[in-house]
Each structure stands twice: as C-alpha cells, then as structure tokens.
C-alpha cells in the first residue's frame, strides 16, 4: 500500500515538474542565471573591451560606493522620488477609482480615458511631457495665465526632478486605479446598506468602509509603487538625454547603474550597485509589511 502510494506521488511529481519544465528553463535562463551572474560580477573587476577579463576583487566594488558621491546623490534623488510619487499616485488612484465606482453616466468612456496613459508607451508619454514642460510649453503657459511663477522645468536643477515625478504619477496612477476599482466592486452592498440604515453619509461610508476594506489592496499598490519608483529609469533617461543632469538632479539609481554599465563598461561596479538597489527595495518592502501589520491575511 505504502509502496503504491509512494510510487503514485513520484509519478505525480514527475508530471508536475514536466509541466513546469518549460517555465523552469525559461525562468532559469533569463532570471535565475542572470541574478547569479550579476552576483558573481559584483565581486569582480570586469574588463570587457579588448578581451573579456574577470579579476576577483572581493568587496572593493562595495567599498567604492561609500566614496562615490554620485551613489549618494542618486539614492537621495530616488528616495525623494519615492516619497513623493508613491503617496500621490496611490491617492490619485483611489480618488479616480472612487469616482468611477459612483454611478455616473458614461462610466465606460471615462474608464477608457483614465486608463489610456498606462497603456501608452512611456517613451511617447515622456516626449509629450517634454513638450508640456518645455520653457514655452503648456504648463508654463497655464502657470503664467494664473500668475504663478514659471520655471524652465527640465533645465533647472531645483525643479527638474518634479517634472519627472509629474510624468510618472500621471502614467502609473491609472493602472493602480483599475486594481482599486476591481476590489471596490467586490465590497458587498450589504455593508453599505446597513451603514446607511445607521445614518452614515457618503463621506463616512468612504472612510469607514471603503478605505479600511481596501487595506490589503493598498498594501499591494504601495509595494508595487515603491518598487516601480525605485526602478525609475526611462523618464529620467529621456529627460536628461542619459546623463542625469542638470547638476545630477535627475540622476536616479538605475540611471547611474546604466551609466556605469554601458557608458563606462564597468560591469562589476554596476552589478554591485544593482545588488545595493535590490537590498534597499527588499528592506523597504519588509518595513511596509510591518507597517501594514498582519491584516493582509
């Protein structure tokens, strides 16, 4: 009896693994192996041009970070970026979702319109925003009409990063909106009804029912938002034409990694920085789990 059971389990295991085989191969080749390789690279000094060569240098690449001002500048920029973008995009997503969840006329039309930025290529969006943020662009025109001070949004170090933030909030909020919307529609009407009987108004219902019940979703959205924001690259790259200027104000950590990897061909150091980024993101996610408590389960 036991033998037959064991045999069956083995067979099931084989079947299971065979079904997973293609995925395992693909993930192994394109995800696991590169991660291990990057790990290996980060402890080496890599020469690529004129003959590939690896020199084991131990922790030298990591020591180099401490002395590298650009690492700290880029981490500071990225942290600033995360701290502003994540709350804004989460709130905007929640507000948009709430608006669409209300029984409005032409809901589907607005859903499509709101969702468009997310499915537009980020390169195209960035170019459109480059025009909007241009010194003679739409934003300055509007600000000028309202008698607000105007800025050369992409050339002044003090405000250049805000331009990039604005772009990213605009393009990512709708994606999260859809996630919020889906879970809002899952909330049972009975709860709202009983609240109404108890005399709750729309505002109270939103804050006391909708928001608390969406907490797991908010956790998910914030985690994804933080990871995405830490990895911001394309907008900063296009805005600064790849160099993170003016005065390093749009230098994000991924842009810095790109510069070291492909401009200087310093793969060892770039891999070490990528590892640093991975650790930072993991730490942030752990902190968030603590903050949001166990209500997720």
């Amino acid at each position: 009896m036991k033998g037959i059971l064991g045999n069956r389990r083995a067979k099931e295991n084989i079947a299971g693994y065979s079904f997973m085989f293609p995925t395992i191969v693909i993930i192994g080749t394109f995800v696991i192996l590169p991660i291990l390789y990057a790990l290996f690279l980060s402890f080496n000094k890599v020469t690529l041009l004129g003959g590939v060569n690896y020199d084991f240098v131990g922790l030298k690449n990591f020591n180099r970070m401490i002395d590298d001002d650009k690492v700290w500048i880029s981490l500071k920029n990225t942290a600033k970026y995360v701290l502003i973008v994540v709350p804004c995009q989460t709130m905007l997503a929640l507000i948009l979702a709430a608006a669409l969840n209300a029984k409005l006329r032409g809901r589907n039309f607005f859903r499509t319109v709101y969702f468009l930025p997310t499915i537009t290529s980020s390169a195209v969006l960035t170019l459109i925003f480059v025009w909007i943020l241009n010194n003679n662009g739409l934003l300055n025109e509007l600000l000028g009409m309202l008698h607000f001070p105007t800025h050369n949004w992409l050339a002044e170090p003090a405000v250049a990063l805000f331009g990039v933030m604005l772009m990213n909030i605009y393009s990512t909020a709708p994606g999260f909106m859809v996630i919020y919307l889906a879970s809002m529609q899952d909330i049972s009407h009975n709860i709202y009804e009983s609240a109404e009987i108890d005399g709750a108004n729309a505002w109270t219902k939103f804050w006391k029912i909708t928001v608390p019940l969406l907490k797991p979703v908010t956790f998910f959205v914030v985690v994804l938002g933080v990871i995405g924001s830490f990895q911001v690259f394309d907008q900063a790259y296009i805005v600064s034409r790849g160099d993170g200027g003016p005065n390093n104000s749009t230098l994000t950590i991924v842009l810095l990694i790109y510069k070291y990897a492909f401009k200087n061909l310093d793969m060892g150091y770039a891999s070490a920085l990528a590892l640093l980024l991975a650790i930072v993101i993991m730490l942030f996610t752990l902190v968030q789990r603590k903050l949001f408590g166990d209500e997720k389960n």
């Binding site: 002044e156 170090p157 003090a158 160099d243 993170g244 200027g245 003016p246 005065n247 390093n248 200087n264």
Partner: peptide, 19 residues
C-alpha cells in the same frame, strides 16, 4: 575626457544658471 566632460558639464551648467 568622457569622465571629465560629464562632471564638468554638470557643474558648469549650475554655475551658468547662477546656482
């Protein structure tokens, strides 16, 4: 020169802008 040029430009622009 590529390294020097990047760092020069970064700082020179901010001096040019009067920062």
């Amino acid at each position: 020169l590529p390294i020097i040029s990047t760092n020069f430009n970064n700082q020179f622009v901010s001096a040019y802008l009067g920062d």
